[in-house]
Write a protein that binds this DNA or RNA. Structure first.
Lengths: 235, 235
DNA sequence: GGATGTGAAACACTTCACAGCT
DNA sequence: AGCTGTGAAGTGTTTCACATCC
């Protein structure tokens, strides 16, 4: 099963969690672990841990468990964290600045290579040693170096256009912080189904929406029993 | 089916999205809509929209669709957004400050009633007209007024203790921004299964983890076809 | 006619039980 | 004996088709 074909979405979220745990264990000098151990820290079942890993290969030793070091390396490889990723941030308000400065964000070969905004008061100023550029310069910027990911930290009413700018610049992954559903551009040929525009093919959008998170919390507080104590949800 | 009993988790996330769309439609002066219409904006199927709503009642008129105004009001009620929610923020670094100032965060009857940190340089300073208090004061603070939700914007190594402080103060919903799995306190009676401590019963934790979001993006960019173009995921 | 509401089918994900190594 | 890896069973979610009502 080393060649993934039909992997639950939630498995990927959990792999990220397992990796975080392995890094913590390694930092503590612990070098062996088990599905039970990981399950406890990740708050999932041990079955789940083993199944999740089984989608990608065999990383343990029966009767023994897993070597922290080995499993960590494998998970980094699987998640693609062993190669560099160039990231730009669109929208340098308070949130954009917090993201640019977030400790740990530049680990894992992620690097923020460009910061963009449209506000003339912000363009030209420095954040974390980088100069904020005008959004208009994005496409030229992207021609000079590959940009694989973009963060959308712009106001909601600008999010759709900013997303289009990212995709036009060749960005394949968007982390959207705006409380808006990003729409891929479509076009209709007469008599046919609407088609997704070429530049959007293969583009992934992940939403990070804490307003939505608050609202879900409100619901679950009012309706206890509809959810297990604590769940991993991608907001 | 007006009394919820077994509602998919993802349905709640989508209701939040539908509500956002309805508010936008209302702001545009549009007063009627349909499951098709909502589905398009939310990037889900029309079946899904109708099924999601059906868990809670009947809000439309056959042949006619939905009245924006009515459906909006119903969704607000269902999600519990028609009543006040007192929220505290723990950790007033860049992220905490961005959250406290986020436009739209104080809509919907959510109000930030207290800001807490442990850093002596921060305690006593003002953010958005409020004085940052020391975390030690939280339990006393919570005795003086109800606190239903707490945001965890502290460094990862402090997140577990800060979560415990929130729960000890009676908070029932935690929005966790730290890249850590929060563990409910458990205790073991000899010979029995570990039990969850009383103060954690009914507590909901939602995670908002943009680092995890980045890592998932990396995976999905490297493995296209494992996910449909753009998905709603709780980070 | 047209769009909702909903049981039933299809699909996806998780849990389980146990075979298989060490 | 102990813990992983995995087919199979069980559960949950989405899709579908269509009866229903305005």
């Amino acid at each position: 099963m080393s060649n993934p074909s039909n992997i639950p979405n939630a498995t990927i979220s959990r792999l990220v969690t397992y990796l975080r745990i392995l890094e913590k264990l390694e930092a503590q000098g612990i070098n062996r672990t088990s599905s039970n151990h990981l399950a406890e820290w990740a708050q999932v079942s041990a079955f789940q841990v083993r199944k999740d890993l089984a989608y990608f290969g065999r990383f343990g030793t029966r009767g023994m468990g897993y070597t922290v070091n080995v499993l960590k390396r494998e998970l980094r490889r699987i998640l693609g964290l062993n190669r560099p990723w160039n990231v730009v941030i669109l929208g340098m308000g308070r949130l954009g600045q917090a993201l640019a400065n977030y400790p740990g964000a530049s680990d894992y070969e992620f690097s923020f290579v460009g910061l963009f905004d449209v506000d003339p008061d912000k363009v030209g100023t420095q954040v974390r040693g980088m100069t904020i550029q005008h959004l208009e310069g994005l496409s030229e910027f992207a021609r000079q170096q590959p940009v694989e990911m973009g963060f959308l930290a712009v106001p909601p009413e600008r999010a759709q256009d900013a997303a289009q700018a990212l995709v036009d610049a060749g960005v394949k992954g968007i982390l959207n912080f705006a409380p808006v559903v990003i729409q891929p551009r479509t076009f209709e040929r007469p008599g046919r189904e609407p088609e997704i525009a070429d530049e959007w093919r293969g583009v992934i959008v992940e939403n990070v929406d804490f307003l939505a998170g608050m609202k879900r919390l409100a619901f679950f507080i009012l309706n206890p029993g509809l959810r297990d104590l604590d769940t991993e949800v991608e907001v």
